[in-house]
Amino acid sequence: MVTIKEFPKEEYLLKGHAACAGCGPSIALRLLFKALGNKVIMVVPACCTTVIQGPYPYTSFAVPLQNMLFEATGATCSGIAAALKIRGLEDITVVGWAGDGGTVDIGLQALSGAAERETNFIYICYDNEAYGNTGLQRSGATPYGAWTTTTPTGKKERKKDMPLIMAAHKIPYVATACPSYPVDFVNKLRKAKEIKGTKYIHVLAPCPTGWRYDTSKTVEIGRLAVHTGIWALYEIEYGRFRLNPPSDRLIDKSKRKPVREYLAMQDRFRHLTEADIEKIQQWVDMDWEYYRKLASSECSDLTLHGKI
């Protein structure tokens, strides 16, 4: 475990990158390098990071980066990992870094295949809950009710639960994170680096451009997502589910803030009715009942898969 004071001083996300002001994913990117260092090969499909890195002949990344087709991150990482293995360079960490559309929608097949093949890599989905790079269209990760350019009256369906889909692959490590909790995220990445096999981390990455809030509020929005329980910080290590601070103190509903507070800060939810808000609150409460069961000693002992 590292504390924030022990984070390395080195920066591998360099000055001059092209992220929007207040960009949540760019904070996560900076933390990624703090956690993993620069002995990393990254694969980035079409996503906001295509732009963030800067155009040819420039780059804001101090690690080798393969830009790749939208749906192909998982498979490309399999290829790189295989090549590194046969070259005896397995001390290099292969990282797939993709947005929510590139993960839960178009990239799901390649990611599922890579996980099933036990590809030795870390896959990070930075989730801003829409196709941000193309101008904020709805994705499978967009939450119920959210305005996007293709859901002008709000999305009518719920968000796909990607971390649990990945847990169903019985990979050794699945975690959720949020850049508002840098120590949690960095420690999860460090843990993932030490585990062989497929590691999946799903990062809720607030996006002022898409979520319609003031650029100074990114960290606050992320904290509210966690404190209202609409986003839970947890990890599933060899099948054992564990809530992480501060989510581990939120099983009791009275400890959670009303989800209304999180929704009210973002204009993408401004059109929601009272009935909508009540429905979202009920879903959050149901999710937490499920987390409570997963975190209970009974369920933890009955892990989905052991380290055999």
Binding site: V43, Q66, M68, T76, S78, A82, A83, A110
Partner: peptide
């Protein structure tokens, strides 16, 4: 995609 990754990795 895997061939591209592997060829790029040498």
């Amino acid at each position: 995609a895997a061939c591209i990754g592997a060829a790029a990795a040498g």
